[in-house]
């Protein structure tokens, strides 16, 4: 929203839109568990099976939008030649 619109219409429309998006997600979460949360856990578990990484080198970003949500999992994996001894198999 442009600055001009803020002056003209106030901040209530922003409040309204933020609430609509948030509540759509929260209502969905009541009937089935947090899908993005499950994906996050499972993706990390799968990667952990193949390479070992420091838990604090994992960056997870979530963006819940009106029609689509995104989940970005950024895992810093040490180069294979340096960890070949660490990985089983």
């Amino acid at each position: 929203m442009r600055l001009f619109d803020l002056f003209r219409r106030g901040t209530a429309p922003i409040a309204r839109e933020r609430l609509q998006i948030l509540l759509a997600h929260e209502r969905g979460a009541r009937s089935h568990p947090d899908l993005l949360g499950i994906l996050r856990e499972e993706i990390i578990a799968v990667i952990g099976r193949h390479v070992s990484f420091e838990p604090d080198k994992v960056q997870i970003k979530m963006d819940r939008g009106k029609t689509v949500s995104t989940l970005a999992v950024d895992i810093e994996i040490p180069n294979l030649d340096r960890i070949s001894g660490l990985v089983p198999g």
């Binding site: 003209r8 209530a12 509540l23």
Partner: peptide, 16 residues
């Protein structure tokens, strides 16, 4: 404040 768009309106609340 609702008329100035500073506060959610009655309709906003009821619709949500």
């Amino acid at each position: 404040r609702a008329a100035r768009g500073e506060m959610l309106s009655i309709n906003d609340v009821l619709e949500i």
